[in-house]
Amino acid sequence: MTMRLWFPASIVILWGGLALVSPLLPLNPHAIDLANILTPPGATTWLGYDDLGRSIADRLATGAQTSFIVALAVVFLGVTLGGLLGATSGYLSGWVDHIFVRIVDILLAFPGLLLAIALAAALGPGIENVIVALSLTGWVGYARLARAQVLSLKQADHVVAARAIGTSTWRILTRHLLPLLTAPLIVEASFGIAGAIIAEAGLSFLGLGVQPPEASWGSMIRDGTRYMLVAPHLVIIPGMTLMLVVLAANLLGDWLRDWLDIKDQVGKR
């Protein structure tokens, strides 16, 4: 069963590590070398070169950085903002909660990536706007989860006891409720990372994400589709990378969920 953890964990660590060290590496993701146009992967050419003679390995590494920054920022903003708002709303209940639920419902009324695409289109391209668009649409899931958890935890003995002895709302939220929320939020976040990676690549694929010459796996796939006939490696390499990382994040989420569930049961006994 260790395979279930080590395979995805090592890929995710590789991805994060690459993103973190890539600014320190001597990468030339924008260096155009016309003589190398569409060179296929090989022993001396690494992963080959793209339609402008840029190194695919270098662009893959900077693309990892792009996706890492976006995924981390989106998930962090989503978990903290969404978690806090959802928990507060669930705890306070009453009209605050009512309005909150309405807002969440409205945001959930937009299907899939649609709102993010529309937001990114209105805000204009660029990595910051991708983060803004994905966070604005992404926090809702965490908020809903946190709210539902708080609603059920509110009646838990230790919370009722804390309230009885007159502990402040803020203290109850931060000391008694949030710690219990972390586990489900972490599981949700690991799936959220997978979602954010795909969403960023999707926006870049549509030309709404990072702008050329900046590298993103999504824009690499889009550019690569034009040379599918003569240089399929341009599509296959970034696509496989993207898929592996997303798969790893999903597997990790699955594993985390199972693992945390088991721990829960152990705790109850």
Binding site: H30, I32, L34, D51, L52, P212, P213, D223, R226
Partner: peptide, 13 residues
């Protein structure tokens, strides 16, 4: 047009 864009990127570089 991707090819025009590609030429533009080369000229940009």
């Amino acid at each position: 047009d991707p090819f025009r864009l590609r030429l533009a990127t080369i000229i940009q570089d």
